[in-house]
Design a protein around this nucleic acid. Structure first.
Lengths: 218, 218
DNA sequence: TCACGCTTCAAACAGTTGTTCGTCCCTCGA
DNA sequence: TCGAGGGACGAACAACTGTTTGAAGCGTGA
């Protein structure tokens, strides 16, 4: 065991390099292994920073998780809101169902494109939703704001549907997204005998929109 | 702290009462709090049995989780297969899409009915799928058998669809089910302002079938 | 009555966890 | 040149983790 060479001494930059590095490594490890399966030592070890860095820069391990969650969901929701806004303008205030759903589906799907930097962020968000802490769940419940805009747009696009029905179908659509985890893709791949490839994200997005749009207009 | 009264001394029955009790308590705690958030001491404490019971009866904490998972998924899949078989006979070997999807959706939805004993089992399965251990993921991948029967039935019911498309849409349907967690219902309830009640499970099942059937026939 | 098995029990084990402490380094402004 | 302060560092802490151990309790059949 002579490979414990310190090499570069954690890059003693004056900027907040260690903080960013901890953030990035933690996001990746959390996304792949889950929150409770990753220790502070795993993070600081892989990031080649001191053990105390997490508590110094973020306060606690839970606060680190919550910070990543806040940042990433904020980015995602802003992008979704932007696309919904564009669709609203493009369709003169009354976007059709498919355009609304595209604003909901496209950002996470495009970010999850293999090779995209944000791919791991999407996986983090999906996992965080599944095994979130009480603090995160509360934040999600209060964060209902951006989603309600989608709900209202859908209600306007489907005036013949009861509001209750629109909310349920929106719930079903969210389920379609949140099921797009690595493990689920692997399982689908095994089930289909290998004919389902997720390489072409745009194609998959079209598939999801076809399915969800038809379901919404049922 | 004088309330540590032993009361009934863990019910020294001759049958495997402790084993069953550990099984039931562990299932409930796992379902509500997640696997890593529940310690062996939490389980044995709530079950009022000795700490070593888990390792004695199940071998390890992981093996206990895996055992619960095997039992519950086995029950669920058998019920699904039974309903698919019935639908196949009822429709003379060619069940329509809706009947197939009902065989897939109805068992977990009916079990999740408030007041049903199996409600907590459904929540356990959903959570286990989300944060499963590698052993469970492997079991799920090999367990593809019962699902492939659904895939084949759907292919037969939709001869105009490409097989690839059928598999993807089946994947979307599974996402709709797996999103039915307590936390998601709470969030939907907050989003809709309280108009979405999950009390009537049959109604919800109908909603899911309406949505999924239309999506499949798109 | 004895001895054998299955089960339960209290206690301890060794390892890991998140967090905190005091010290050192290095940079920037006076 | 000096002093100050933000940051990194190694080390230690106390709590909790899953698991193991050896003894004790227990009912059953000989």
């Amino acid at each position: 065991m002579t490979d414990a060479l310190p090499e570069v001494p954690a890059a003693a930059h004056s900027e907040a390099a260690t903080r960013d590095c901890v953030f990035a490594v933690a996001e990746r490890l959390f996304a792949v292994q889950g929150f409770k399966n990753v220790s502070v030592r795993d993070i600081t070890g892989e990031a080649r920073v001191n053990l105390a860095s997490v508590n110094y820069h973020f306060g606690s391990k839970d606060a680190l998780l919550f910070e990543i969650f806040k940042v990433r969901t904020g980015e995602l929701n802003r992008e979704r809101a932007r696309m919904l806004h564009e669709a609203t303008e493009r369709h003169l205030g009354k976007p059709p169902v498919r355009a609304i759903l595209e604003a909901l589906f496209a950002p996470p799907m495009r970010w999850a494109n293999p090779g995209n930097d944000r791919r791991i962020s999407v996986q983090f968000i999906i996992r965080a939703r599944a095994e979130g802490t009480p603090a995160m769940r509360e934040a999600l419940t209060q964060d209902v704001g951006y989603l309600s805009r989608f709900a209202e747009a859908l209600c306007a696009a489907c005036p013949n549907l009861a509001r209750e029905t629109v909310f349920w179908r929106l719930h079903f659509c969210l389920g379609m997204i949140h099921n797009n985890r690595f493990a689920e893709f692997d399982r689908l791949h095994a089930l289909s005998g290998g004919i389902t490839r997720e390489g072409d994200v745009e194609r998959l997005l079209t598939r999801m929109l076809d399915f969800a749009e038809a379901g919404f207009l049922a």
